[in-house]
Computed example of a mutant assay.
Amino acid sequence: MNFLNENATSKRTIDDVLLELSNSDNTFISIQEFGKKSVNGDLNGIEIQNRLAELGYDVLLPNKEGKNPVNVRLFYRRSEVTFLEKELPISNEYLNRQCGGSFFVGGEEISVYSLYLPLASDDFVGKELYWDDILNFALKKVLANEKIILTGDFNESEMKRDDTKYYLKISELGKLFSEKDKESTWENKRLDHIFVSPALEKKVETFETYPVGISNHKKISVKINLAR
């Protein structure tokens, strides 16, 4: 959502945001770089949450909010899923940049996480620890044959090596969890991802990447048919 950029020039309104987030009947919505309000004043995060609640979405928050609006949110449509419990953070690093929950949906119990990793150039040690925890978590879930979805902005891309350090971690996670699409999501880099565990891989029907007017990143969307 790019809430921290005081120089953002997008002409988005809250109605634009609500239309984009709710017009596809999304069961889950994962967003990053979010907070109580954007620093340039164009959007109010509390109002977005309240409006989505009116449209039938409940929200999961991180265990801790960051001082800056670089937090995550996970919205879910209450008429389609039964919320079971909030999951523990995957990592002890960056608690504002991760949240997840377990849900009963379509006759299946699944867990969904919204993640947002910092740029490696800002904190090599913290990001490496965060990545280690993600990969250890993914391996345990694969061995347990659990149905898991990991979504978010991982701030790493294999498409063009840049000043980030841990782009190879994307490959490591991709060997454990599946990802169907490889298009760029920010300029010429693929920073945003949806990974599904092997227990869900065969249930994926479509995977799309397309630009939206409410963000400087593209939107990624996956359709999973749990009845398959």
Rank of each mutant, 00 (worst) to 15 (best):
M1A: 08
F3D: 03
L4I: 10
N5V: 03
E6V: 07
T9I: 02
T9G: 05
S10A: 13
I14P: 01
I14L: 10
V17G: 01
V17P: 04
N23L: 14
S24A: 15
T27Y: 06
F28W: 05
S30V: 04
S30Q: 10
S30F: 02
F34T: 08
G35P: 05
K36R: 11
K36A: 12
V39F: 07
G41Q: 03
D42H: 09
D42R: 12
N44K: 10
E47M: 02
I48K: 00
I48P: 00
L52G: 00
L52H: 00
A53W: 00
E54M: 00
E54V: 01
E54W: 00
L55S: 02
L55P: 00
G56W: 01
V59S: 00
L60C: 00
L61A: 07
P62E: 07
E65M: 08
E65F: 06
N68C: 08
V70K: 05
V70P: 01
N71C: 04
F75G: 01
R78S: 03
S79W: 01
T82R: 13
F83V: 01
P89Q: 04
I90H: 06
S91H: 03
N92W: 07
N96R: 08
N96I: 02
C99K: 10
G100H: 06
S102A: 05
F104N: 10
F104T: 05
E109S: 09
E109L: 09
S111W: 07
V112W: 10
S114G: 09
L119W: 09
D122K: 14
D122T: 13
D122R: 13
F124A: 08
L129G: 07
Y130N: 11
D132H: 08
D132S: 11
L135K: 08
L135N: 09
N136Y: 11
A138D: 04
A138H: 02
K140F: 00
E146S: 05
K147Y: 09
K147T: 03
I148E: 06
I149M: 12
G152I: 05
E156M: 07
M159I: 14
D162P: 05
D162R: 12
D162A: 14
Y166I: 08
L168R: 13
L168M: 08
K169E: 15
S171D: 12
G174N: 06
L176D: 04
L176E: 03
S178P: 07
K180V: 11
D181C: 14
T185Q: 15
L191N: 12
D192C: 07
D192F: 10
D192R: 11
D192A: 05
D192K: 10
H193F: 15
V196I: 13
S197P: 07
E201W: 09
E201A: 15
K202N: 15
T206C: 14
F207R: 13
V212S: 12
G213E: 14
S215P: 06
N216F: 11
H217S: 06
H217L: 04
K218T: 11
K218Q: 14
K218S: 13
I220A: 10
K223L: 14
N225Q: 13
A227R: 11
A227G: 09
R228E: 11
R228P: 01
